[in-house]
């Protein structure tokens, strides 16, 4: 609902200019970007996390429920920020399942990620059925508000996440250790880096960021959580990690590109020239672009070398 309002507002002011679209593009890009950075951190440490989609859903459902309940209790504006925090924490909690399976038990990371994705479908709507007696959360009255430029605070959060991730990964010793765990965990271990601890931190931060992003989606783009709220955005974020070649700037560019395509799918109606195309064409774009890119860059492998492989001490 809010997205249509935002689009309509933009439409009234600057019907034909692209500038008017920037706020809604940012609104859609931000959560994808936040999730993708989380996924990148996770893969940089050597753990693949295909559960991003499910973790976003869990975060979104938690944030929506928390906000509705706190709004009813009269908490007021801080409720939005508290809900975002709750969404992020719940996302991190669920990612702990993936962490235990992938790091302690050497489980197949794809299986455990798939399990969390399936589990998320059930847990979210189950919670809504218990809390609100419906297959969706109750609608909240007031979502996140835009600033004077019409931009949601989520855009600034996303920007901060990219900047912090870049700084930590490439400027701090901790970041170097984390990347070492993803490239060659045995070498990292031999110089005294605690591979398991670092991978835990990476997986939990990807869960935290995915949960946060889920909250961002639900509080800016809609008024309640339904089973359709996330609708593949977690997988788009996963694609952005590959397409962005596991580098913060690249991932940010990819997320921006894919988010813009998503935005076009929603706002293409405002542009007579684009109306001849089915809106689904824009929906398909991120996936096709990623596939083509993966084929084109297939000669060189940009992925962290130990990505997706369990680290077994002593084995080589």
């Amino acid at each position: 609902m809010a997205e249509q309002e935002a689009v309509a507002e933009g439409g009234v002011e600057k019907m034909s200019t692209l500038i008017g679209m920037i706020p809604s593009i940012l609104m859609i890009v931000s959560p994808i970007l936040i999730t993708a950075i989380g996924g990148m951190i996770c893969e940089k440490s050597g753990v693949v996390n295909i559960a991003l989609e499910g973790l976003m859903g869990i975060g979104a459902c938690a944030a929506a429920s928390a906000h509705v309940l706190m709004e009813a209790a009269g908490v007021g504006m801080p409720s939005i920020w508290l809900s975002l925090g709750i969404g992020a924490l719940i996302g991190a909690t669920f990612s702990a399942i993936h962490a235990v399976a992938a790091i302690n038990l050497n489980a197949d990371q794809t299986i455990s990620g798939t399990g969390i994705n399936l589990l998320a479908d059930g847990v979210t709507i189950f919670a809504a059925q218990i809390l609100f007696r419906a297959d969706r959360t109750r609608e909240f009255r007031m979502g996140m508000q835009t600033d004077a430029l019409g931009i949601y605070p989520t855009a600034y959060i996303a920007l901060a996440v990219v900047a912090i991730a870049w700084f930590v990964l490439y400027k701090l010793p901790f970041g170097m250790h984390l990347r070492a765990c993803g490239e060659h965990p045995h070498a990292a271990d031999s110089v005294g880096i605690n591979v398991k601890k670092i991978r835990y931190i990476a997986v939990l931060s990807s869960g935290l960021l995915a949960g946060l992003a889920g909250g961002c989606i639900v509080l800016t783009q809609t008024i309640q959580y339904t089973s359709n709220t996330i609708n593949g955005r977690g997988f788009i974020a996963l694609a952005a990690v590959s397409f962005g070649r596991w580098r913060p700037a690249g991932v940010a560019f990819a997320a921006f590109l894919f988010g813009t395509a998503q935005a076009f799918a929603i706002i293409a109606n405002n542009f007579p020239a684009l109306r001849v195309l089915p809106t689904e064409v824009f929906n398909i774009l991120p996936y096709v672009v990623t596939l083509v890119a993966l084929v084109m860059f297939s000669g060189k492998n940009y992925a962290p070398r130990a990505n997706g492989k369990p680290y077994i001490k002593g084995a080589s």
Binding site: D108, I111, S112, L119, D121, I125, D135
Partner: peptide, 23 residues
């Protein structure tokens, strides 16, 4: 709530992943 079936299915897959613990 009928979503309990999704939860059970998801749990089954998660437990299968945790099955690596047996080894």
């Amino acid at each position: 709530p009928k979503e309990i079936t999704f939860i059970i299915q998801g749990l089954i897959v998660v437990f299968i992943a945790l099955r690596a613990a047996i080894a």
